[in-house]
Nucleic acid binder design. Structure first.
Lengths: 213, 213
DNA sequence: ATTTTAAGACCGACCGGTTGGTCTAAAACT
DNA sequence: AGTTTTAGACCAACCGGTCGGTCTTAAAAT
């Protein structure tokens, strides 16, 4: 006979997990993976280190729970933009707005992601690295699809879509960095709007050129 | 009276310093400041740790000797571009080419700089942080000057020169990151050339619009 | 309703390993 | 002989992760 005596579910599991994740986000995003300590995260969450290890089996697992969440969110956004109806420029416009909002909403996530990219990937377990690279690959592919459409529609110059998407990604990430380093001297929203207006300008002149010539 | 008597200059001292700096560059650029160890740097240079400390008084000092060199080089490049004769577009074109060459020549320096920007500045001594921020400020100012000229010449749209220069810097840095992460999937030279052609395109259409309207 | 039971939740001392920096003694040079 | 240079043992501080043990609480048993 199975002994179920005293068996119970963890009533506070979700709550605690959230508390720890929030604390971890704060500490990891401020210090990066290697400089962050599990004691500090536990303290920040208001618990002992042992308790933190009750919920996560390692520092790495906790870290990648956050990294995964960030990449998942970003990927979904880009894929949704790609699958939307409308012109490529409309898709890019919508995506730019959403990305900006995402960044402002989850600034610590941005910092986390940003610090992560400067870490040595070799120090992490291969399964996590693979998972991460898969997210990045899928995101880039979705973005490249939109850009390809834009080139076909003549709203972007007829250059290699892959390189165009790299440039676009580079521009956004480069502005993101400046905003993260000093938000008071660079307003990301304004930068994104300016970038968007350039895109539109390119689109217009491109179309005018193709219809006029 | 100046005491020069008996003050001997070790003929190999400079050589050793260079060896240590090169080793430090290799290790710091691969691991970042905090994960790099002095023992490893000493070993890489072919000396004992004690010897390394005979040449530099701290890890931080060694690190900033490299950081300083990198920023100095970049700043000089941008300032030289700004003080060149010719149109803003010519300056930017020259600068883009030089930057690309610099990056390819000193890839490890790029990595170092890139990792450095993800570090917590608070962990360094204020004097170093100040020095660093001064370099960045001067670089940005020089770049902004060129961009301002470009706007006045009508080869860039009439937007805030500061934001334009931030975007330009962001684009270059964003592409640099992608190239650092995986040079086989993103060729920086090609990316820079593409970016440059966009700049020229903007300049032409901008001028045509102003002369035609 | 009260007691019993055992899993859930929690803690912090502790361990093994690492690292920046020091110290000393010997080697090398002049 | 005296000075410069080198090496690596050594130290104190720190960190990820473990472990033994304690307290809490839901559910089973009465």
């Amino acid at each position: 006979m199975a002994k179920t005596l005293g068996m119970r579910k963890n009533p506070v599991k979700d709550e605690r997990e959230q508390a720890f994740k929030q604390a971890a986000l704060k500490v990891f995003s401020a210090k990066g993976y290697h400089r962050a300590t599990m004691s500090e995260i536990a303290l920040e969450a208001g618990f002992g280190k042992g308790t933190l290890y009750w919920y996560w089996k390692s520092k790495e697992e906790l870290y990648f729970a956050l990294i995964r969440q960030m990449h998942e969110e970003f990927l979904q956004l880009v894929e949704e933009a790609a699958s939307r109806p409308g012109s490529a420029l409309e898709k890019l416009g919508w995506m730019g707005g959403e990305i900006t909002e995402l960044y402002y909403r989850d600034r610590d996530f941005c910092k986390l992601s940003w610090k992560m990219r400067a870490e040595e990937l070799e120090t992490f377990s291969p399964q996590y690295v693979e998972e991460l690279q898969d997210y990045i690959k899928r995101t880039k592919r979705a973005l490249e699809g939109i850009v390809k459409q834009a080139v076909e529609e003549g709203s972007l110059p007829p250059a290699d879509p892959y390189y165009l998407s790299c440039m676009l990604l580079g521009l956004v990430e480069g502005m993101e960095i400046q905003w993260l380093e000093d938000p008071s001297s660079f307003d990301l929203r304004r930068g994104m709007e300016l970038a968007m207006s350039f895109l539109l300008f390119l689109g217009e002149t491109g179309k005018r050129a193709s219809t006029g010539g």
